[in-house]
Design a protein around this nucleic acid. Structure first.
Ligand code: SF4
Ligand code: SF4
Lengths: 162, 162
DNA sequence: CGAAATAAGGATAACACATATCCTTAATCT
DNA sequence: AGATTAAGGATATGTGTTATCCTTATTTCG
C-alpha cells in the first residue's frame, strides 16, 4: 500500500507556491523543471489540485498556478486527498455475510468491529495530516535548508513566475 | 491507496482462531468455507501469518492453524504488517535532488520535512493498530454479535477443528 | 505400510491501477 | 496574429493485486 508519487509532487509544488508573492503565477513547465519531473504527467497532479479548489490558474503566457488560500489555511490532508482521493484504506467486502451459520435473510447492522478499528486507524492518519499546514512546513524548511540554496531557488522561481 | 483484501481475510481468520480451544487446529479449507473465500488464495494470506510467526501449523489430516500467542498479546498491527508488509505509505524519491539551483555535489542530510511529516502520519496509523489486540476485538464482537450466531459459528468451527 | 489430508510454495494467467506520453481545444498575453 | 498556457481526452506501458493450478513434504489413520 503505497501513495502515488503524485502526492510527493503535489506537496513539493505547494511548498514552492506558498513562497510565491501575492498575485504571481508559476507554470507547470517551471515546476517540472525545478523538480526534474515529466511536465505532462505533473500537469495531471496540478489539475487535481485545481479541481479540489486548492490552487487558482490563469491561461496564456505568464499563466500558471498560485495557491487559493493562505499557507496557514492549507493542510497536508487537503493536498494528499486532492491527489490520492479521500477513500478509506480498509475496504470491507462484508465477508461475514458468507458465514454459513447465520440464519437465512439475517441482515447485519452496520460495519463490524474489525472495520471500525481499521477506520479509526485511518482517521488517526488523517488527523495528523490535518494538523499540519503549509505554513508549518515553510517554517521547518526555512530552518532545514541552507540559506544560499533557499534564496537561490527563490530567485530562480521569481525569474519564471508570471 | 487501498489495503489488500488479504488483510481483511487475515483479521477475520485470526478472530476465529482466537476462539479455538488450546491445542486444536483449524484448516485452510474450513476457514475458506466459513468466510466464502477462495481456498488457494486464502492460503497465501495464512502463509504470511505463518512466516511472521503469528500462527503455528501442523500437517496431515486434522492439521491446520492455531495462534502462536495469547489473543491479548497479538495486535492488529502485527497481523496487518504480516500480510501487507511494514513499509511506509509515503516513499521519498528525493526529487529535491533535481533542483537545478543547488550547488554541484551538494548532498542532502537526511529526509526533509515533507517526508518526516508524512512518516509521522504513518506512525499515528500504526500506533492505533498497535494499541488494539485480538482480545479487545473478541470482547467487542461478543457484544455485537447475537448469541445464537456466535454460538452456532463456534459449534461449526469445533466440529471441523483438528 | 498405503491412502487420504494437509501446509508450503512455485509457476502462471487475468485484472486493476499507477505511470507516462501524445495530441487537441480554449483561453490569455504581447 | 502568434506564442504560451491550463485542461483534458486517448492511449500505451509497467507494476502490483488477485486468482488458479500443480508439485512436494509431512502427518494421520485404517
Ligand atoms: S470487516 Fe467487519 S464489516 Fe467488513 S466484512 Fe469483516 S465482519 Fe464484515
Ligand atoms: S519528500 Fe523531502 S526527502 Fe523526499 S524527495 Fe521531497 S524533499 Fe526530498
Amino acid at each position: 500500500m503505497i501513495l502515488k508519487s503524485q502526492v510527493e509532487w503535489a506537496l513539493h509544488c505547494c511548498a514552492i507556491l506558498s513562497g510565491l508573492p501575492e498575485g504571481r503565477y508559476l507554470s507547470t513547465k517551471a515546476l517540472a523543471e525545478l523538480h526534474g519531473l515529466p511536465k505532462e504527467y505533473l500537469s495531471k497532479a496540478l489539475q487535481s489540485l485545481s479541481q479540489a479548489g486548492l490552487v487558482l490558474t490563469t491561461l496564456g503566457p505568464s499563466g500558471g498556478y498560485r495557491l487559493a488560500k493562505a499557507p496557514s489555511e492549507l493542510t497536508f490532508l487537503e493536498i494528499v486527498e486532492a491527489v490520492e482521493g479521500s477513500g478509506r484504506t480498509f475496504v470491507c467486502n462484508n465477508i461475514r455475510a458468507n458465514n454459513p451459520c447465520r440464519p437465512q435473510g439475517y441482515c447485519e447492522s452496520g460495519p463490524c468491529a474489525i472495520a471500525r478499528i481499521m477506520w479509526e486507524a485511518d482517521e488517526a492518519w488523517r488527523a495528523k495530516l490535518r494538523s499540519v499546514t503549509l505554513a508549518d512546513l515553510g517554517e521547518i524548511l526555512a530552518q532545514d535548508i541552507p540559506a544560499d540554496i533557499w534564496n537561490g531557488t527563490f530567485e530562480w522561481v521569481l525569474k519564471r513566475a508570471g
